[in-house]
Design a binder for these strands. Structure first.
Lengths: 142, 142
DNA sequence: ATTCGTGCAAACCCTTTGCAAAGAG
DNA sequence: CTCTTTGCAAAGGGTTTGCACGAAT
């Protein structure tokens, strides 16, 4: 999926391509989420969308985020149990999470380690591999 | 750190070695957590401890889990924002998380990929690397 | 008409906190 | 005696849900 759908029509088509009925609110939420590489919380999505022309309720934001994540157009980033972040589903990358500040930084990784991944139990399929590097203020690696 | 059921004295010494005042409650919580390889929630810890001779309150369980995690004798496992799991700090391993059932399985990994980890920004130090393989029911990898 | 989506507010639930009593050193 | 730890209950806060209204076919 590219990362610059821009027009309302493009966004609506993107949603339909993922079996999502394109409504006004969903298009606006998608526009906000997919505008650029970023990690945003539900609250941030609501705030950003509501600065625009259309108003979206909290329930709709949560419903939509879950829907989008389930359909694969965005990904949940779970680094801190107190708040979920969402990001556009782009190419494989992982996260550096600053436990002091909550800051989240992407890093590209081809997952060469894929080779070393475990065999998953019979009857299960891998739906994702998340790598989180936790960092905090301090000297670099000894 | 070894991983066996221990005597009260051994547990108390372990706590002191980690700069933790050894109290009755903390020893019992440590005994439960360190009994074996496992992933337990705060609630499970409380239930297990309270089946024994001593009763521990919810506040103490949460305080103690945070304390232990900060001192490094246990690790938080964050795979699902709705509940934190805790496990003994043992050798490096990672997790397979079944998103359907919530089941969590360990897998050993020497992190050969350490070589491919990003350079962390100046002034930061790595405190941990978590790898989570998310799986669900379905055919194996195509 | 029937189905799906939205919005408001209340409910949920894990976790944290305030404060008084008990324990450790 | 002083500082720390515990326990109870209440508060906190992101997320979810119940239900009525509105939109679409």
């Amino acid at each position: 999926m590219e990362l610059h759908p821009r027009t309302t029509t493009e966004l609506a088509n993107l949603l339909r391509d993922h079996d999502i009925t394109a409504t006004l609110q969903r298009v606006e939420i998608a526009r906000t989420l997919l505008a650029k590489k970023q990690h945003v919380s539900a609250e941030q999505v609501m705030t950003k969308v509501n600065k625009g022309r259309y108003i979206v309720s909290k329930a709709t934001v949560y419903n939509t985020l879950r829907l989008f994540a389930g359909k694969g157009i965005i990904k949940e980033v779970i680094v801190n149990p107190s708040k979920i972040f969402y990001e556009p589903s782009t190419t494989s990358h992982h996260h550096i999470y600053n436990v002091d500040t909550g800051e989240l930084i992407d890093f590209e990784a081809e997952l060469p380690q894929m080779a070393s991944l475990p065999e998953v139990p019979e009857g299960l399929m891998v739906v994702g591999v998340d790598v989180t590097v936790r960092v905090r203020a301090g000297a670099a690696v000894a």
